[in-house]
Amino acid sequence: MKPAPFAYAKARSVAAAIELLASNDARLLAGGQSLIATLNMRLSQPALLVDINGIAGLDRIALTNAHIEIGTLVRYAQAERSPEIARAAPLIALALPHIGHTAIRNRGTLGGSLAFADPAAELPACMIALGAEIEIVGPQGQRAVKADEFFKDLFETALTARDVLTAIRVPVASGATRVGFAEFARRHGDYAMVGLAACAQADGTRLNDLRLAYFGVGATPVRARKAEAALAEGDVEAGVSALAGDLDPPDDVQASGAVKTHLAGVLLRRVARQLGRAAS
């Protein structure tokens, strides 16, 4: 379990990182919680690692009226301790304790999780549920991509080989915002067998702009749009039934697709209670 030989460069600015990414077969190194394991198992063998951990300013959490902006190098542990995230992005605060273990959360970054885009990871689904924007800087400058369009396929995102994900922008939760999060993992800290991140705006008993983002059920996080429609009307059981049309999870070593679909329904009932509880 030794990585294949690679070169290493430490970038001091985003521009420098983009410059370094121009060389053939380069990869960004952030928290390294996924990349280092794949290197050691020789599942990936990049020629150059571009370390962005030394770039100043990428670990800021900034709050404006409309958005909370989370820098790409914000570590899970830092986010867990952030009162701004707890207040403005309570869904992320709900999800964080489910991510790995303390050692992983001390090192792993929010930006790294999105860029890696593991289909069973918590944060990509949270971004979709929250309608977040992903800020990207590339050779042509800066752009923002909506979370719904960011996750393309298994470990594939809107990032090109020369892009740096620099920040995440999440709309600030209002008094009407309702969030819910639950997942099933065989052991605490494991990637979920299936999980659900949800966000809505309450309007009396109605849930507007309801977003149900499942993870661990396909190549990317999956919006359960039929279930959303049913649940928005307050019919949880119709939502559970609708999941069969929304989700088609493949079998994996922890659970078959049938088990995942069943568990997705159990999660929906639990998350629906969370969304309702918050409303009352």
């Binding site: 065989r186 922890q254 659970a255 049938a258 088990v259």
Partner: peptide
Amino acid sequence: FTPGRILQALGRISESTPT
């Protein structure tokens, strides 16, 4: 005794389905 096997024993998912 995985969740899938227990769900199967409970009849929550069918016996012919993989767990």
